[in-house]
Amino acid sequence: MNSKKIAYCGLLTTVALLLSYVERMIAIPMIVPGMKLGLANITVLIALYLFDNKTAFCISILRILISGILFTGFASFLYSAAGALLSFIIMSFCKKRNVFSVIAISILGGISHNIGQIFIACIVVENIKLFYYMPFLMILGIATGFITGAIGNKTIHYIKHYN
């Protein structure tokens, strides 16, 4: 752990927090309730590629914890945590395989984030019918995952090139 890495981690966590704040202000027409762009996933993606699983995991958890305290409250914290955990597991697993591109990993992360959230929501309200939203969330997850993946891909190349 050198000072450069510490600085990067702090920066990435801050950017992640900022992005989750910005994301709350962007009002997308509510096709599916509570849908978001998943911009904060960009930072997790970058950390996953620049550093290792452990670092990316810490950044992801820190972001959810702090944004839960600052902006959202406990209920939303639970759902974000479930989504982020599942999406992190899937993304780090796929990254290890070494056959997926950055954008594909981002899309898989987006989709699994949605699945994790719906799963926890179903448990909390004890109603399996929430899976009714799944196909809509699949489409949105692929779309937003592609956008964040493309941004992440460019950023990773840029940082690696100028380091």
């Binding site: 309730p33 209920a75 929501a121 309200v125 004890e126 109603n127 019918k129 929430l130 939203y133």
Partner: peptide
């Protein structure tokens, strides 16, 4: 039919 409004913090499902 089948459409939902869900309030997760209150655990309310309107179906």
């Amino acid at each position: 039919k089948g459409e939902l409004i869900v309030c997760l913090p209150h655990k309310v499902v309107i179906e």
